[in-house]
């Protein structure tokens, strides 16, 4: 299991950010569509996939919303928008993180990586992406970017996991198609070729 991401740490993060949108109304608030209130800085810089990006961010806006709707990085998917499914998983300072459950304003000094940032400049796929292709891990593909990012986070912390360690590390990512077996095959393949 990735030592950086414990359930306690995740829950603490959610409480601190106050961004676990549990109602419809909060969902829209989290999408950054409120008017600015008071003297809250809105134009901030965040580091996404190695690039400093200037972006206009509402106080209560989630990272998932910023990535998808402000920066056009639609590879990060929203399956539940309330920390249940893991489809929006990105890496924050190498730690798999639910982008729906952190505020963009808390990311000002963080290094964010999304699925769009994994390919090499020459187009070579990341080992996890190639491993997932080799094993035909995805089915419908909607959870796949989140699965990819969790696997990348795992392999950075533990380049040669056992299948059981991989299962534990990936356990925050739901796949309704039930492709878990094939994703684990993909992670093990990625560890081989990585």
């Amino acid at each position: 299991m990735n030592p950086k991401l414990t359930r306690r740490r995740f829950i603490k993060g959610v409480i601190a950010s106050g961004a676990a949108a549990t109602t419809t109304t909060m969902w829209y608030a989290a999408n950054g569509q409120d008017r600015p209130t008071g003297f809250v800085e809105r134009l901030i810089r965040i580091n996404v996939n190695g690039q400093e990006r200037s972006v206009d961010v509402a106080p209560q806006e989630t990272l998932a919303s910023t990535l998808r709707y402000k920066l056009g990085l639609t590879g990060t998917k929203l399956g539940c928008n309330r920390g249940e499914c893991g489809a929006c998983t990105v890496l924050v300072d190498d730690t798999p993180t639910y982008a729906c459950s952190v505020l963009t304003h808390s990311m000002k000094f963080a290094r964010i990586e999304t699925v769009e940032g994994l390919e090499a400049p020459n187009g070579d796929l990341h080992a996890v992406q190639q491993g997932f292709i080799d094993q035909l891990s995805p089915q419908c593909g909607y959870c796949t970017p989140g699965q990819v990012m969790s696997a990348v986070g795992l392999l950075r912390a533990n380049p040669n996991p056992t299948r059981e360690e991989a299962r534990q590390a990936m356990a925050g990512n739901i796949c309704r198609c039930g492709s878990y077996d094939s994703y684990l095959d993909g992670v093990m393949r990625a560890a081989e070729i990585g």
């Binding site: 590879g75 929203l78 699925v115 292709i133 035909l136 593909g141 909607y142």
Partner: peptide
């Protein structure tokens, strides 16, 4: 389509 799924390039309706 599998490359689009692992890179996030393939588009679903909301994208």
């Amino acid at each position: 389509d599998v490359a689009g799924k692992v890179t996030g390039r393939i588009k679903y309706s909301e994208d």
